[in-house]
């Protein structure tokens, strides 16, 4: 084999290695961020806790379908954001929301939620810092958002702040861990779990490549999963 041939085949090998590496990053469990387009829609089946007196453990589930629609890029809070509309209703509750995700990193910036319950309407706005997972346990729709990009495996610690009273804050460390989830014949996916310092799970989600939002997850007693289109 001549040097030229060696160089040629060596070049091919390098190209192949680089290509496989790129494929692994794209199709495997490398850094992942969702990808949206204006007009894109999906539906989340939200299974809230349901009280059943006759059951031994007193809990069943009741479902509300939440319809998501990417409205487009908009300015919100001084930043360029993806605006996502959410609507859903069921069992006496009607929900309308606009969620603003920072375009740069898909972190949740602002959530405006209008809730109508038994004819009474209330509107709330949450704002979230960029540098920590978004958690809003009192929201009627799941707002929890991990810090992107997701890399498996990874484990990061963030500090979050809860406001108590008019003048106090309660800070707690939150650990976001990401692991590759078994594909089971489907696209690569990521298991995201956020826990507080006591090990209590604040939320858990599974994100799947090619899907616009978490395909399933839970926070507290609330579970949700993305409906097949």
């Amino acid at each position: 084999m001549t040097r030229t041939a060696t160089a040629f085949f060596g070049g091919i090998l390098i190209v192949l290695i680089a290509a496989f590496a790129a494929w692994g990053a794209e199709e495997g469990t490398g850094p992942f961020m969702p990808s949206w387009e204006p007009g894109q829609t999906w539906t989340l089946r939200l299974e809230a806790a349901k009280w059943e007196s006759g059951q031994e453990n007193g809990n069943g589930t009741g479902a509300i379908l939440l319809r998501y629609r990417v409205r487009g890029m908009e300015e919100a809070g001084g930043e360029t954001c993806w605006a996502v509309e959410v609507s859903g209703e069921g069992a006496g509750l009607s929900l309308e929301a606009t969620l603003f995700y920072r375009a740069a990193d898909f972190s949740l910036s602002i959530a405006e939620v209008t809730r109508t319950r038994m004819g009474e309407t209330g509107r709330e706005t949450w704002t979230f810092p960029r540098e920590a997972p978004a958690v809003a346990k009192f929201a009627d729709i799941p707002l929890e958002t991990p810090v992107f990009p997701l890399t498996a495996p990874s484990r990061k610690t963030f500090e979050m702040e809860r406001r108590i009273g008019n003048d106090l804050a309660f800070r707690e460390k939150v650990v976001q861990s990401v692991d590759a989830a078994p594909g089971n014949g489907r696209a690569p996916s990521y298991e995201v779990i956020c826990k507080n310092k006591d090990g209590i799970v604040l939320f858990a989600q599974r994100w799947e490549k090619g899907k616009p939002w978490a395909v399933e997850g839970h926070s507290g007693d609330r579970k949700y999963r993305m409906e097949e289109p």
Partner: peptide, 25 residues
């Protein structure tokens, strides 16, 4: 009729939770 109530559940693990729930709702 409300056996079958759909609800959001919040554990009260400490005074912070208690106060936060009162303030929020």
């Amino acid at each position: 009729v409300y056996d079958g109530t759909l609800y959001n559940f919040y554990p009260i693990d400490g005074p912070e939770d208690f106060q936060e729930i009162l303030e929020t709702f």
